[in-house]
Nucleic acid binder design. Structure first.
Lengths: 149, 149
DNA sequence: CGTAAGACCTGTAGTTGCTGTAGGTGCAAG
DNA sequence: CTTGCACCTACAGCAACTACAGGTCTTACG
């Protein structure tokens, strides 16, 4: 039988999530509210555990919670075509790839900066100079800041 | 003569920063409070403009504000050895490199997920299955979440 | 010189995804 | 039956902004 229930701490242990985070997901609508014991403690089922595992895995993969909720909603209805899930994943892949590209440009700039440091005084330090350099001739232009992740 | 002063909007335009962000940096202690006009408007000098450019550049490079403040503090004293600045930059470079590595692992996982999607029903969708997969056999373990950037 | 647009002011609340606290109650093992 | 941990609610705070609301100052035009 799997009518067993889990306390919030069990879910936390099994998914590597903090207890407060699980409660926060519930307030947030990402986790469904479980039944309660007489004393008011949350009593989760296997379905809750699965849902939380799904959420945490998607979050580890960098999906924003909005996307996670959309994916959860899709997965609740197994007969729907999965194009939407695919689209979300594809879009996320695109965001990850552009993030990598920008970080690599940044890595090059930082590496150049660190290489050029002559370990003398701050007044002659390339690290400080590059940061102070207003002209940005050598600089990447990372767009407007951050699409996800 | 460069006794000219700048209004907050001038700084915003010249550095591509939003006006509220400049005020926020001031409340925050990252920007120094400028003189005021009789009517109470902020009157910035060239030094303020330079400082803001420094801040924005460092932020674009992904340095957390704490690091930016440390770097600003160092750059205020040009006779100090620049090892500290170098250390901050090096540490940041390390963080960027580990971030890239993790994103590349993630990219591979996402690409695999998307490739495996058969465009059928959600019930058979690899995207959903991989996310629901609790076992994480194939999964990266990104440590505890995110050092900077 | 008057007025109206628009830039500026302060203060506060919201964003995302959590984390941590205070102050109290339930539950289970010894 | 007690002790101590797990649990409860509610709220405050983190980074680093962004976005109001509701008012005041400056400036340019007529």
């Amino acid at each position: 039988m799997d009518t067993a229930t889990y306390a919030i701490g069990d879910l936390a242990r099994q998914t590597g999530t903090k207890v407060e985070l699980i409660r926060w997901y519930e307030r947030d609508g990402t986790m469904l509210p479980p039944a309660r014991t007489e004393g008011g403690h949350r009593a989760y089922t296997q379905a809750h555990l699965d849902r939380l595992a799904f959420i945490r895995h998607a979050r580890e993969l960098g999906f924003p919670l909005d996307d996670v909720r959309a994916l959860l909603h899709l997965s609740d209805d197994p007969d729907r075509p999965c194009d939407e899930a695919d689209a979300i994943a594809r879009q996320h892949l695109g965001a990850v790839r552009s993030r990598i590209a920008r970080l690599q440009a940044l890595e090059a700039e930082l590496a150049r900066m660190v290489d050029a440091c002559g370990h003398g005084k701050v007044g002659a330090c390339r690290v400080i100079q590059v940061l102070a350099d207003h002209s940005h001739e050598h600089c990447i232009h990372p767009g407007h800041g951050g699409t996800g992740l």
